[in-house]
Design a protein around this nucleic acid. Sequence first.
DNA 1: AAACGCCTCAACCGCGCCTAA
DNA 2: CTTAGGCGCGGTTGAGGCGTT
Length: 275
Amino acid sequence: MEDYERNSNSPPHEEDSDVRKGPWTEDEDAILINFVSIHGDARWNHIARSSGLKRTGKSCRLRWLNYLRPDVRRGNITLEEQLMILKLHSLWGNRWSKIAQYLPGRTDNEIKNYWRTRVQKQAKHLRCDVNSNLFKETMKNVWMPRLVERINAQTPSPTYEQVESMVTDPSQPIDEPSPVEPGFVQFNQNHHCHQQQYVPASDVSATSSNSPAETLSDVQGGVVNGLGYDPVGQTGFDGFNDWGCVGGDNMWTDDESFWFVQDQLCNETTSYSYN
DNA sequence: AAACGCCTCAACCGCGCCTAA
DNA sequence: CTTAGGCGCGGTTGAGGCGTT
């Protein structure tokens, strides 16, 4: 189904050799930005063809979404975002694009990379599979509370108990929705960009195959409202630099996490061996 | 200073879904 | 109903940066 990128008038091999791959140049970026500003970020094959870029529509779309669009955030994942990722991944697994919807400005690619490079590394250290119950329980019972502690250590409020209840209690109130587009619900203000975020209402209903724990209220009443995206931007998370926040970009240092978690696992699971 | 290995992340690939003809 | 175009998603790759020896 990739054949749509080929011009039907040209032999496939000839067209293939005409398609540029690899890193984008500044000129290509400028062309794409210009075209998207005029034509919008849809119909990527049309953009690819009419812009003169020797790129596929897919490549253009990816470059725009992951790098060029104005609201994209790149750089250190904050503690709050780390906690959010852990929480949402525990609910939805590798649904990166879905997780990314709740991390304003973050791309699915970035979250996926974060998970693979940081979280999977921890699992590797522990010699267990990221999908194992052991790792999931460790994440839930050890790392997530620890992240909350570290967040609390940075910010005077809310208290650990308050945050913990926010994370686990879906009944926590959510922000009163203000007028929003039909089909969307308001999401908290992005503390970094100060933009209103909207979440597809289809996700809010959380019907179909989602379990009760997968409802948006679980997320909104929990991690989102509780930790990351303060609507007024005054209760803490703007109090430090996103890209150089206290504690750095990792949820733990290698030394810290390895021995800390090993201690925890020793306490909690007697059958696990570390070699 | 050079070589090596590891890590990060931008970009590509393959697949599946949706939609229109 | 079938087919093809288009798009989005998750998985994978590889270049370059960085730290270590």
